[in-house]
Amino acid sequence: MARFDGFLIQRSYTMIFKQLFEPDTCTYTYLLGCDRTRRTVLIDPVANEVENYIGRLKQLDLNLLYTMETHVHADHITGSGLLREHLGSKSVVHRDAGAMCADLLVTDGILLQVGDLEIEVRHTPGHTNGCVSYVVGDRVFTGDALFIGGCGRTDFQQGDAGRLYDSITKKLFTLPPDTLVYPGHDYNGNTVSSIKQEMAKNPRLGAGKSREEFIAIMNELDLPYPKYIDQALPANQACGREPAVRHG
């Protein structure tokens, strides 16, 4: 499927939508804005791309309202803290994410209004306890829960393969089949999939694979230790800023 970039007509309003890519960690960040109010969110911003985000927002005359995390990342440092300092945006994470520095702690089913855009929070744990996916009209932003042809790993943080299977099958595969899937990462140059495609072809849990089959597949993965985890986890629990050092 082709990359979507620019202005999209959806539900009788105009949504500004851009898919941004950070090559070092193969991370996708998503910019979603309301054309009428110029209010905007960034999903999963990366710290070393903050200047680029600020320039793009200025170029498009957009007001950043929220930075929305899909989870506490282990592979990169979030840009939410820096963006809050520069632009006054509010950071959003799930209440189970372990990032109490956030401005807004959300739960399953919460609806966030950003101008004419309605963003639904779906709790999709399994990669971590605090993973969420964001549903906006005909698309879902799945973070590290569901990838194109894959899914997030379950062998560290609060990973639980059975819980991830339940999240994907009950919270994501129940969306309309034509719902577009935009993941948090892709390592093969893919930009977008669909619920129908992942249900049919995802090698880890598509084609009707059972919960037991999925758990067995995940248990057999031999994945390297994430190279940025020791820096990323403590920083992300502090919304991307260095944790404060107490002096006696």
Score class of each variant (00 low, 15 high):
Ile217His: 07
Asp61Cys: 11
Asn202Gly: 07
Ile229Val: 13
Arg246Lys: 14
Arg246Leu: 15
Ser12Val: 07
Arg163Gln: 15
Asp144Lys: 00
Leu233Ser: 01
Met1Lys: 11
Asn202Leu: 08
Tyr225Phe: 10
Tyr228Leu: 14
Ala97Arg: 03
Met218Pro: 01
Phe147Tyr: 14
Val92Met: 00
Leu8Thr: 08
Lys196Gln: 15
Thr67Pro: 06
Leu31Glu: 02
Thr14Gln: 10
Leu180Lys: 06
Ala161Thr: 00
Phe7Thr: 14
Thr70Asp: 00
Gln157Tyr: 08
Arg139Asn: 06
Pro125Asp: 08
Asp160Leu: 06
Glu85Met: 10
Gly98Tyr: 03
Ala2Pro: 15
Ile168Trp: 00
Gly159His: 08
Gly98Pro: 02
Asp178Ile: 10
Leu8Gly: 00
Leu112His: 08
Arg241Leu: 15
Ile43Val: 15
Pro234Arg: 10
Ile43Phe: 02
Tyr13Cys: 07
His127Phe: 05
Lys201His: 15
Thr14Lys: 07
Asp96Gln: 12
Val92Ala: 03
Gly130Leu: 00
Gly115Lys: 03
Gln231Thr: 14
Gly149Tyr: 03
Leu104Asp: 08
His247Lys: 12
Cys101Ile: 00
Arg122Pro: 06
Thr191Pro: 03
Leu221Gln: 13
Ala244Met: 14
Asn188Ala: 15
Arg246Gln: 14
Thr40Leu: 04
Asp155Phe: 09
Ile229Trp: 06
Arg153Asp: 08
His123Asn: 04
Glu118Asp: 12
Leu205Cys: 09
Gly137Thr: 04
Gly189Asp: 09
Pro125Met: 04
Ala216Val: 10
Gln10Met: 09
Gln157Ile: 05
Arg39Val: 05
Asp116Thr: 14
Asp160Asn: 15
Lys196Leu: 15
Asp166Trp: 04
Met218Cys: 14
Ile217Gln: 03
Pro177Tyr: 12
Leu8Ser: 04
Thr174Val: 12
Gly143Asp: 07
Pro177Gln: 14
Leu112Ala: 07
Arg39Lys: 12
Gly88Asp: 04
Asp61Arg: 13
Asn129Phe: 04
Gly248Glu: 13
Pro234Phe: 11
Ser133His: 04
Glu213Leu: 09
Lys90Ile: 07
Pro45Ser: 09
Glu242Phe: 03
Lys18Cys: 00
Asp155Glu: 13
Arg36Met: 14
Ala200Tyr: 06
Leu111Ala: 08
Arg139Ala: 10
Gly137Arg: 01
Ala2Arg: 12
Tyr225His: 11
Lys90Val: 09
Gly98Ile: 07
Glu198Asn: 06
Asp44Phe: 00
Val106Gly: 01
Glu118Trp: 02
Thr70Leu: 01
